[in-house]
Structure formats: C-alpha cells, structure tokens
Design a binder for these strands. Structure first.
Lengths: 223, 223
DNA sequence: CGATTTGTTATACGCTTGAATAACTGCGAG
DNA sequence: CTCGCAGTTATTCAAGCGTATAACAAATCG
C-alpha cells in the first residue's frame, strides 16, 4: 500500500502537459472521452491535480481550444518572402501537414460543436477567426500592391472571405477524406481556384511542387 | 400518485418524434446534452421508451445522423430546369436557408466530431459524402454537355471536388458567422468563384437574385 | 364488453462523472 | 540536515448517465 511516486513540475510544464493530454483525449475519443480521469491518466497524474491548475473542466477545455487555434494558425503567420510567395505559402501551409490531417479536424469539429453552446468558447473562436481573416486580407492587399494595383479594402475583404471559404472547404475535404485524393491534388485545386478567383497566376511554393497534372487538367477549358 | 397520461403512437410517429427530439437536444446543448432523459423529455415521453424503439443510445444517434444528412442534401437533389439552372440552383440552395444556418452547423459539427471515433457514423458519413459529390459531378457533366463540350470524367471529378470544397467552406463561413456578411454576399462570392473555376458564367437562380454588387466588385480585376 | 396484447410508465441498479477534501511527500529554503 | 510548504495523491460524495425490468393501461379484437 505505497503511495505512487511523483515529481513536482513547474506550473508551465504541468499546464502544458495537461492541455496536451486533453487534446489527445478529444482526438482519440471525442469530447465525451475527455473526462478528468482520462486526461489525468494520459498526463500521468491523478484526476485531482487537474482542479489544482484549472478552476473547472470547462476552463481546461477553453485553454485547450486556444492552443489548438494557435497551432492551426501559427504556421500561416510569420511567412516571409515576396507578397506572392507569402500568399502562395499561405495556401500551401493550410492544406498540408501538420495543419491538414484527420486529428486536426476531429479536434476542430469537437470544439466547433460547442461554440454555439458555450459563450466562452464562442469568444475564443471569434477572435481566432477574425485574426485569421485579417491576416489573409493583409496578404491580399500586399499582393495587389506589389502588382501595382490600387488599394481597395472592399475588394480585399470580399476576396479574403472567398479565399478563406475555399481554403476551409478544401482543408475539410482533405481532413475528412484525404485518402480519396491524389498527392497534392487538393493543393493544386486550391491554386487553380484561387488564381481564377483573384484573376492572377500565383507561383506554387518552391519547397515542394505539387503535381501540375491536376492544375493543367483544370486549365484545359480556361483560355 | 396517478400515473401520467399517454397515448400510443405508431412506430413511425414515435421514431420520428424521438429522432427530432434528439436533433433538438444536440443543437441546443451539444452531444453531451443529448441524454436519454433529455431526449425523452423533449419528445414528451419517459426515458425508458427510447430503448423500446432503439437498441441503444448509439443507434438513435446514428438514425439522427442519417436524417440530418438527408435533410442537408435533399434540397440539392431533384432540381429541375436546364443543366445551367440546376447547377445554379445547386449553389444557391446549399448556401441559403434552410441548409445554411447555425443549427445545421452545430448538428453537423457534433456528428463530424464523432465520425473519426465511431465506425458506424463514419460509414453513414462516407455514403452521404460520396452521394453528394456524385450528384455534383453529374450536374457538371450535364452542364458541359449542354454547352457542346466533350465528356471528361476526370475534369468533372476534379471540378466537383473543388466546387464541393468551395461550397462547404462558404456554407461553413455563413453558418458560423452569418451576421458578418451582407445579404446574399456569400452566394455572390460562390457564383464568382465557381464561374471563375469552371471558366463559364452561370446565371443566378431566378427565384431570388442576390446582390449583383458583390459579383461586380469581384469582377473588377478580371480581364 | 371482457380478454389480451404491447406501448408506455415507473423504478431501480451499477457505473461514471466533476468536484471537494484530507492525507501524504518531494524538494527547496534556511 | 531538517523543516515547512505547496504540489500531488487518495478517497469520498452527490448527481447524472445508460440500461434493465416490472407494473400499468390504452388500444385492439373477438
């Protein structure tokens, strides 16, 4: 009847581990599987500890949502290069690993399904969404400016909405049924759609050239 | 201490009412709020009755998911008119009431978040998805045929994926943050994006002409 | 109009949940 | 090296969960 061994961690470490364990639980078993006992178990501690770091289970879920949003959007910020390169990378990054995979989607959907129920989650969501779209608007504004076109915030806003929708939708398709698509197929579709939408070609990112096959297929009837 | 009054309903009625109650519970309080007691309460019966019609709570959730999918896709099937009109209506229908609203989204997200956990739900999802996309592929094939273009299944498949992505993404944006967009704005964006994608103009549905303002705005820089 | 079926209610059971609390102990301060 | 505190464990609690089952009564049928 000996007590279990344990080590005392710093607050930052513990909170991080617990949040990470929460995300793992949700992705593996859904929100219903993220019980305080499961989370604690996955983090290698006992259930009571969670309440030592988070006022309630709701709070740890909110913190986990913030972390998820940050993780899904951080890759798309701090892009460098010319405006065209940044726009191109933005598209690519949002449709490939590690942003686009089934784990991301199940986590995202789990939280989204609670956004309309829990006002605290709704606030977190809204902030993340607006920030993402503003980032995109700026990218578009820079892109057009680099092409010598006049500033036009209304145009940029509309295009950002449209492009955000396209990226979200293709991200979703890729996450949900990635095995149905060829390598780079979704990225190619995104480039073709967005090029058509904004009326300018965009060079694909240099780091990894997706099949041009599909883009060519799409272009057959453009001209 | 009198027993509660009740009336005996047909199996079809009861099952319908219980499934409807399930969807209500989920949309109002998330999957966690859809307990057998809450569902029964909303349906005006007692909890035990649920197990009389459904082998388990899992089963009633699966049936509810089937109903939701049918409801989200039925409007997009059985469209009539010319191929162009049907394609146009398809876009419109999927981005306006009753398909696009916040209730639809919270229901959809709740189930999606379990698709990766529950194989039975995954099967239901996959069937609905493939059926939806095939419908769209057929629409596109008819559209191109009506324009005298050669049949090209690969092209139709690729375009269907892209268009499905665009519609999903814009549907999502509209459901999540409908109040951020102007009346008909998302529909206009969808038309512009898809016209650009497939390389042909599509007349908007006759029943309700969305603001052409946004479409014109998008077109400024095309040409 | 009484018998019978079966849809429905009512109640109970075992289990899990989020939370509260008491007991323990690793570890840095002194 | 010891002390004391705060991080951690262990235990408990009430509430709610899905499920099982027996009693009841509304509708049907002869």
């Amino acid at each position: 009847m000996s007590r279990r061994d344990f080590h005392r961690a710093t607050e930052a470490e513990r909170r991080h581990d617990l949040i990470e364990a929460t995300l793992d639980c949700i992705s593996e078993a859904g929100l219903q599987g993220a019980t305080v006992r499961q989370i604690a178990n996955k983090a290698g501690v006992t259930a009571g500890l969670i309440r030592h770091y988070f006022a309630s289970k709701e709070v740890i879920l909110q913190e986990a949502y913030k972390v998820l949003i940050a993780r899904l959007t951080e890759k798309a910020k701090n892009l460098d290069g010319t405006p065209e390169e940044r726009l191109s990378s933005f598209i690519f990054v949002n449709l490939t690993e590690p942003v686009a995979n089934s784990r991301s989607l199940s986590l995202w959907a789990a939280f989204i399904s609670r956004v309309s129920v829990d006002p605290a989650l709704a606030a977190i969501h809204r902030e993340g969404y607006l920030s993402f779209r503003q980032e995109l608007e700026q990218l578009l504004a820079d892109f057009f400016a680099a092409r010598g076109m006049a500033a036009d915030p209304a145009r940029d806003r509309t295009l950002a909405i449209a492009m955000n929708g396209i990226l979200d939708g293709l991200w979703l398709e890729g996450c949900l049924a990635g095995e149905l698509f060829g390598e780079g197929e979704l990225v190619s579709i995104a480039f073709s759609s967005i090029e058509a939408l904004i009326g300018h070609p965009i060079a694909a990112p240099t780091q990894s050239e997706p099949d041009r096959e599909y883009r060519d297929a799409l272009r057959i009837h453009h001209r």
